[in-house]
Every structure is written in C-alpha cells, then in structure tokens.
C-alpha cells in the first residue's frame, strides 16, 4: 500500500508542477483585465478588446497594420480585433463589457450621453466626414433643390444623424427609406438619393457601372456640416482605470495608419488577406480607393493626428442642441481628456 501511496503522491506533485508550469503568463488586474505574456516577449502586455465598426476592409487598415507589424506589442498592448457582432450595437458592446474600445460616430457618441457622461473619446480617427448624398442625373436630380420630396436611402444605424441634421438645416423634406449597407435600392431606382461614404459605397456605385458624370453629389463636409465622424470610445470607468493604455492604443493605431499610408500595397495585401479569411467580397481596386480616401479624412491637414479638436466638438454639440434636443453641457475635457485644445 505504501508504494501505491508514494506513487499517488508523486503523481499529485507532478500534476501540480505541470499545472503551474502550463499556466498562461497572465495576471488578473484589479478591474478584472488581464495582462498577457506573449511567448518570446518578456514584458507583460495589456489586453484590449477592440470592436471595429464594420467587417474587414481598408477602413481599418491602420489597425490591421498596427497588429501585423507588432506596433501594439511595442506599445505594451495585446489587442484583440473582434469579429463583426451584427446582432449587437457598439453601445451595447460597451455597456455589456463585451468590448473595451469601440468605433463611434461623434454625433452618435454625444447622443448617448443625454443622461450621464459614461463614455469617453480616447482618440479621433477621422478629422473630416466622408458622407455624400448622391442622386442620378437621369432621375432628374441635378441640384440640392431636386432632393425635395424624393426618396432617400439612409442608413438606419451609424452615421445617419449628420444626414438628418443636414436635411433639417437645409430645409429639404425627403421621404426616408432606412437601409443597411446595400447600394441595390439605388441601382434599382427604388430610392432616388442614397447616403454613401466617399471611401466605400460611392466607389461601389462606380464599380457597378454608374459613371461619375451621371451622379449629382452633395458633399456634406463642403456644405457647412463638417463634423468629424469616426473615433475611439471606451467606458468612462475603463478610461479612469487605464488612461495610459488608452493613449497607447490610440498612438499605436495612428502609427499603424502612418505605416499603411506609406506602404499602401502592403496594407492592401493585409486587408485583402483578412477579407478572404472572413469570406468577404474583395477587390484590390476598391480597397486601394478606400485607403486613398481614408488618408484624406484622417490627415486632411498636418498635425493633431488622432485627436479630437475642441472646435469640432463644440460644433457637434451645437448641432445636436439645435436639431436633436440635446440639453447637457459636457465640458470638452470631460468628453475627450486627450483632445486638441483648438
């Protein structure tokens, strides 16, 4: 019996040793976040779960390059790029704690702070919005005035707020048809005007055989509605616990964007690879266009890369107050602790 006990003890001790040695190099922090030690990297990495706004495409090339080129690791981060969670809204992802960092439109971010300031802008990717309203000249649309009374295919989620504000501000009554990402309602003439991003759906229309000269294009940013859209947002609680990691995430991502802009073909290779892995339709010409147009919205002028400008924020608050009954006065520093004081 003694040898059996000795053997049993040895097995138990060996199992404990094995369990200890096989345990991942992770330590749980006070807030429940994990520091993960990557093999071959001797420093602890802070794990961030990032939720992109849409499926893989060049709109997120900077994030992909930051990950694939190891820029996040250099900033001490282990970033998990989550798949598209169609069933869940980005706000819900933050609320439920499914994601740490999400992509949000500035107006939408302000809109969800009607009761309390529970989310924080940690970085502003796009300094300029890329929203266009396009109509076919063949359908009699040759000016903004021709929009009146026509059907507008408008995104039912995401960046619809600026379009609504534009229509209200310009006093253009239109019949709104809520749509998802499809351009087919427009190509099939079910709607007369459609809401598109210059870097994405607009080029899809061109690739569907619609000629640029056959389109009337209203660029909202050039019509006095220059409100930057995409930014990075976290819960206020998350920011208060990890301000340095939030800043590191934004800085690393913008480094990724700079790398993507200076190595466009490599960035497109990476984007197309990810699209193919996710079984998403991909053609390089479209992704090249998208990367090129993203550069125009991310870096319209030099300086303040990745930071929300105070004036842009104030303009957004003003529009929301005027057209969307927003009544709170949230200080810029509270909404965006790392913003640019201009």
């Amino acid at each position: 019996m003694k040898p059996f006990r000795q053997c049993l003890m040895a097995v138990v001790v060996l199992s404990v040793v094995l369990l200890v040695s096989c345990k991942p190099d992770r330590s749980r922090l006070d807030d429940g976040h994990i520091r993960a030690g990557k093999s071959g990297v001797h420093q602890d990495l802070f794990r961030i779960r990032y939720r992109p706004k849409w499926q893989a495409q060049a709109q997120f090339a900077g994030i992909y390059m930051a990950e694939s080129r190891g820029i996040y690791e250099q900033y001490g981060l282990d970033v998990e790029i989550q798949g598209l969670l169609q069933a869940q809204d980005a706000i819900d992802s933050l609320k439920s704690g499914t994601s740490d960092v999400v992509h949000l439109d500035l107006l939408r971010a302000i809109d969800v702070l009607r009761d309390s300031t529970w989310i924080t802008n940690i970085g502003q990717i796009n300094q300029k919005n890329a929203i266009l309203l396009v109509g076919k000249r063949s359908r009699g649309i040759n000016s903004l005035n021709d929009f009146k009374g026509k059907k507008l295919g408008e995104w039912r989620s995401g960046s619809y707020l600026i379009t609504d504000i534009f229509l209200k501000g310009s006093k253009i009554p239109m019949e709104i048809v809520p749509i998802d990402g499809s351009i087919n309602l427009f190509t099939q003439n079910v709607v007369d005007v459609v809401n598109v991003m210059r870097y994405n759906e607009y080029h899809q229309l061109l690739q569907a055989g619609i000629k640029e000269e056959d389109l009337f294009v209203a660029d909202l940013s050039e019509l006095g509605y220059q409100i930057p859209d995409e930014g990075f947002y976290v819960s206020k609680e998350f920011y208060s616990l990890h301000p340095n990691e939030c800043k590191a995430f934004v800085d690393a991502t913008m480094d990724g964007w700079l790398y993507a802009f200076s190595h466009p073909e490599e960035a497109i290779d990476e984007v197309v690879k990810r699209m193919q892995q996710d079984n998403i339709r991909a053609n390089r010409a479209h992704q090249r266009w998208m990367l090129d147009k993203m550069k125009e919205v991310i870096m319209p002028i030099a300086g303040d890369l990745g930071k929300l400008k105070k004036t842009d924020y104030q303009n957004a608050i003003k529009l929301m107050t005027e057209y969307y009954n927003f009544t709170r006065d949230i200080p810029f520093e509270e909404f965006c602790p790392n913003g640019a004081q201009k």
């Binding site: 169609q86 069933a87 039912r156 048809v177 809520p178 749509i179 998802d180 499809s182 087919n184 309602l185 099939q188 079910v190």
Partner: peptide, 17 residues
C-alpha cells in the same frame, strides 16, 4: 429572428416597389 430581414434586398425592394 429579428427584423433585420426587412432591410435585405430580397425583402425591401419588392416590398417597396
């Protein structure tokens, strides 16, 4: 499930037209 199907081309286009 849900109501997203109402914004799919197969539903939305013939439903409107």
């Amino acid at each position: 499930p849900g109501h997203s199907y109402q914004y799919a081309d197969w539903f939305q286009i013939p439903f409107i037209t």
